[in-house]
């Protein structure tokens, strides 16, 4: 295990009864970068995050965060000292006021930065004397961010950070994430908002039913993923398109659509050699890739 990786897991697994929440998950994340962690509801994103943070214990496999083992309570403490986490519910102590919560949280971190705290308090215009339970979800998210960022964590993990926020707050949040990543914090966030992920992330991980189905940099994806649509005078032979890099072939009538993760040129070449009357090559959006990645296993679910 190298120390360059901010997060790395090896065959990480979590079982609840006979349900495989996470299965043989292996990935590495280098910092500082922004990684989007994608998957459908119940795909195992939260379980993975909670294992990384030592809240739940892996059934098998191992993982390291910032060079510390995730399954050792003592090392988990070291991880948590330099990692911030904002959960989906943004659950904070409802009975405390904003000021009390900030004081409370700051007492745990010797590297707390009062200057950042003050700036963020002013920027977010958080009402110091208001109780947390009286804050809107947007305000709560900002408060959670303030608590996370006022100590410059090495790693910031967010679970569905934009969930329930209005568009303005979402934009602010995304901008904040890019800003702190540029300051050296590695950002790892789960989201269903693919358009957001596509904008800010360096790379993405897609998991489906606990298994990693895609681990790719978005630059690579933009450069290499293509959808080739070819029209033929007669019904085209689908099998001819089973080339390396082809993820999916779909024929409808005389048209054939190929989703390729690389090698688009060869596919175009093949279409031409099969005397295609029209060939169109288009970039593929993250949305399509995501849907394709999680749909591949769809029949298994029906079983």
């Amino acid at each position: 295990m190298t120390s360059d990786n901010v997060i790395e897991t090896h065959a990480l697994a979590k079982r609840y009864g006979d349900v495989d929440a996470v299965h043989a998950l292996s990935f590495q994340i280098r910092g500082p970068s922004i990684t989007g962690f994608l998957g459908r509801n119940g795909a195992g994103k939260s379980s993975t995050i909670r294992m990384l943070l030592g809240m739940i214990k892996p059934t098998a496999g191992s993982g390291m965060v910032l060079g510390h083992r995730i399954d050792d309570p003592k090392q988990s403490l070291l991880i948590r000292r330099r990692t911030a986490y904002i959960g989906e519910e943004k659950g904070l102590y409802a009975y405390m006021t904003v000021e009390q919560l900030v004081r409370f949280t700051s007492s745990f971190y010797p590297d707390w930065r009062p200057d950042i705290e003050q700036r963020l308090l002013r920027m977010y215009q958080l009402p110091l004397r208001r109780k947390v339970k009286a804050l809107s979800k947007g305000m709560r998210t900002k408060l959670a961010l303030l608590l996370a960022l006022s100590r410059r964590p090495a790693l910031l993990i967010l679970d569905e950070p934009t969930e329930g926020l209005d568009p303005v707050s979402i934009e602010e949040l995304l901008q904040m994430l890019t800003g702190i990543a540029a300051e050296g914090t590695t950002v790892f966030f789960s989201s269903h908002q693919l358009a957001e992920v596509e904008r800010i992330a360096d790379s993405i991980l897609i998991i489906e039913r606990g298994r990693l189905v895609l681990d790719v940099s978005l630059d690579h994806l933009r450069e290499n993923y293509r959808r080739v649509t070819a029209g033929f005078p007669a019904r085209p032979p689908e099998a001819e398109f089973r080339l390396p890099g082809v993820e999916r072939v779909r024929a409808s009538g005389r048209q054939i659509t190929v989703l390729a993760s690389r090698n688009a040129d060869a596919i175009v070449e093949r279409a031409r050699s099969l005397s295609a009357v029209s060939v169109e090559v288009e970039p593929v959006s993250l949305r399509e890739i995501f849907l394709d990645a999680v749909r591949t296993d769809a029949p298994a679910e029906a079983r």
Partner: peptide, 17 residues
């Protein structure tokens, strides 16, 4: 705290259980 959704915050504090 689980019922109130603040477990995540508490367990992230750098203190042992």
């Amino acid at each position: 705290e689980r019922a109130h959704g603040s477990t995540g915050f508490t367990l992230m504090l750098p203190v042992s259980r």
